[in-house]
Write a protein that binds this DNA or RNA. Structure first.
Lengths: 337, 337
DNA sequence: TTGTACGCGTTATCAT
DNA sequence: ATGATAACGCGTACAA
């Protein structure tokens, strides 16, 4: 793998420059020469060194992605679509995990920036001030995902968690529910949904909603325990917003176990519309976010900017959709078969 | 971000070399000078260019990971632990997605190799012959994960899918089950578990097990439908091995719906021991793989090799464990509350 | 302790 | 149509 253009050049009986041209823009070189060069290259097992090319071109064809963690299913679809979209255009993705522990982010970003990425993707990440200024001054195209932050560093593709909270509250109110509960993880985005959910409920004249928060990751078992505790500690409630489908799944399960009818006793709304939501019993009403689309849009916007083109909108709200299923509209289907 | 060591050198009133030294090995430079340099660097917003450094050192501090897809929860824990382990030692991860569609892998690997990674990680990937020879000739330390392949390219950390299939068959036989079923995705690893499961069942003198295969990704709904179809098409069975916990979850759910008792009518075993398995009703017996450990071991082995040290074992079998829960041993707990 | 010269592999530019 | 030269930013090797 120490084979360089010079080696290939010797093998093919041409100069290094001709090798470079034959491989990168074959049109500028006679077909016969191209063939000779390509042959020599494959014979020697030549693989172009992108570090050197990048250094020369001041362009790495690298995109840095900063995520809280790779585990946890939330951002996966987005990350997958993003990686795919970038790979298709000749970019590679380099990932950094910040962990959920607030600070330390600075070093992660600086770390990644030392690779001279042509673009940066920030998923579900709260930026420190020093990071913001680093990004700003570095002039690297950046896109924040999954969160309609107040003041994006550069580009932004996401949706409003506040709008979600309010919409779900409205949704439950319109179903005639009057005593709401929130079950969610205590991460920043979930809490913003909760605040907004609560606020809208109060606006609608409902009693103060009850909340049960668990620490991330929110598991199915947390949902079960949450229902147990809410039933024991609070007054009755007839509508619950769970900030993840896993939690909601646990709530449905526990409700079944205690003979609570869903949705007649309590309507349940999840978040994420994960691939099992429609197949639960009862099927789960959930807030659907188009994760892959966020990834695709991000790839597109980033590529545009990395090619020097400008884009129409720096901020794109992909919105969300409440997919109504039996856990809120199950007039006919009882909670347990 | 066009700031180079030369700029910092001017600002600090020293030479470029002194800057490099002050930043990389502060011990070889007077503390006062180090301070001046660091100050100048931060004032100018200097960030070291790893492409240039890597080119010079013939070392990228990059590890390339090739995965079928980022979505799908199977490899996530491993990937997370791997990334963390590498980041802690100064390596970054670049990811390539092959997709599950057999070929084309060659280009992905060659693509990544052009970044001159110091190491390569292959997770759940079937290598083409040209890839194998590319890896071999490139001399890059490589580690294959999650699969005890017959002939690893270099290093290997995983477990035997055949052993899993056989162990689960034994497990069910010892519970007195005589008519087994397999429900799984039709990917390569799952199929190897099935072959081995079937083989062992026949060895034990059982009737031919029935199988229901679904195309990946295997969802909860697939599990439900699988049970429906198996009940309709096949004779009765009293033990089922599902090749993912999601499928198993669907089977449990559907069993509940049709009044089948788990485990008295049918014992159910999952695979993966995902974080919801213990909280299902009934709690799910499952095959546990220590995904994070695989990632950590891979990081360690790779780092060793990348630092020129040799490692003890090129192949590590991390094994697996059948975690026994109520879906196979629930004498007291009925399937529905 | 600090500085100079050179080379890593590639490609843009200019010359042939 | 092809080649020679230089430069990208950094760090090793050696000199001062």
């Amino acid at each position: 793998l120490g084979v360089t253009v010079v080696d290939v050049a010797k093998e093919a009986g041409v100069s290094a420059m001709t090798v470079s041209r034959a491989l990168n823009k074959p049109d500028s070189v006679p077909a016969a020469t191209v063939a000779r060069v390509k042959d020599a290259a494959s014979r020697l097992g030549y693989v172009r060194n992108l570090m050197a090319a990048g250094l020369r071109a001041n362009r790495s064809n690298l995109v840095a992605a900063l995520v809280p963690t790779l585990s946890g299913p939330v951002f996966l679809d987005t990350l997958e679509a993003l990686t795919r979209g970038l790979a298709g255009r000749g970019y590679h993705l380099i990932v950094g995990q910040t962990g959920y522990g607030g600070d330390g982010t600075a070093s992660f970003l600086a770390d990644l920036i030392s690779r001279r990425p042509d673009g940066v993707v920030l998923i579900g990440t709260a930026l420190t001030d020093s990071d913001r200024s680093l990004l700003r001054s570095s002039k690297i195209p950046a896109v924040e995902l999954w969160d309609l932050a107040a003041e994006p560093v550069d580009m932004l593709i996401g949706f409003s968690h506040e709008a979600v909270g309010a919409a779900v509250a409205d949704f439950l109110v319109q179903l005639g529910r009057r005593r709401l509960a929130f079950i969610g993880a205590n991460d920043a985005r979930s809490l913003r949904r909760w605040q907004s959910f609560r606020h809208r409920a109060l606006e609608a004249g409902l009693v103060e909603p009850v909340a049960h928060l668990v620490s991330a990751p929110a598991l199915l078992g947390d949902g079960r325990r949450a229902l147990v505790e809410l039933c024991a500690a609070s007054g009755p409630f007839d509508g619950a917003f769970c900030s993840s489908d896993m939690l909601a799944s646990g709530v449905l399960m526990e409700a079944g176990a205690r003979g609570m009818k869903v949705p007649s006793d309590v309507a349940v709304v999840g978040f994420g519309d994960l691939n099992f939501a429609a197949d639960l019993r009862p099927s789960l009403t959930s807030v659907r976010i188009d994760g892959p689309r966020i990834g695709e849009l991000a790839a597109h916007a980033l590529v545009m900017r990395m090619q020097g083109k400008s884009i129409e909108n720096r901020v794109i709200d992909v919105g969300f959709e409440i997919v109504s299923r039996a856990s809120t509209h199950g007039g006919s289907a009882p909670a347990t078969a």
